[in-house]
Design a protein around this nucleic acid. Sequence first.
DNA 1: AATTGTATTGACGTAAACGTCAAGCTTGTA
DNA 2: TACAAGCTTGACGTTTACGTCAATACAATT
Lengths: 128, 128
Amino acid sequence: MDELFTVNELAQELGITARTLRFYETKGLLSPQRAGTTRVYTKRDRARMRLILRGKRLGFSLAEIKEYLDLYKVDNENVEQQRLLLARVRERMAELEAQREDLEAAVAELKDIEEQVAETLKTKGVTT
Amino acid sequence: MDELFTVNELAQELGITARTLRFYETKGLLSPQRAGTTRVYTKRDRARMRLILRGKRLGFSLAEIKEYLDLYKVDNENVEQQRLLLARVRERMAELEAQREDLEAAVAELKDIEEQVAETLKTKGVTT
DNA sequence: AATTGTATTGACGTAAACGTCAAGCTTGTA
DNA sequence: TACAAGCTTGACGTTTACGTCAATACAATT
């Protein structure tokens, strides 16, 4: 029972449009099966799309996301390729760690503002 | 001794172009002083620009960053405005927390890949 | 069989975020 | 004073990531 989806079904499930799914396909991010000319998506395609959307939420471009996804198709025969993969994985992690720092700095500042505002309102006898 | 910068000086310091600084100005993100017609930036402008660039690294649009920056210019007289500010600050924090979850999920996956690759290489007697 | 509903492939449009001239103005220096 | 260096404001170009038709084909329903 391998659930299948049409473009529009999957689009709705993911909160995007069919156009987006087709566009991503032209960009090589996805390659669903076909029933004749009609696209047929599987749960695996859906999972892949969720990774893509997460990448977008993190601010990566489609090109970067494609590289990220390529990290998954591991050819564990070629040692040299494995080494390259490892290096890229570590680069990515470093990027994400840097982003985490930016994120925490932003959160810290917002907390400061929050406290100040809450304080000001308390002074004026307003409930937050 | 309030250090001042020209467009190009500040651009170089921040690793961006003068065009970007001018563009952000037209978008209302910045408003440096002028010496005649020439733009003059202060350390304060530079600090503001660093906030903007961090916002970009986090994947926010210039419009969103502008809203973010507006959270700083607090008018602590108007209680209603303070309440609104507080609400927005909390929304932003929620967004960032969601992003942190995405980020950690991505890092976790990369760690998995890293381990698998390292394991494969070790099996083949390759030093990582 | 005729109609209605989806899907498909172009092709063109668009908003965001700048890049890249072009033309003119000011200013420090030889 | 001539001129090179740096600044200014347009104006148009470009890339990314889709939106929006249009024309056509296939599929399902009456």
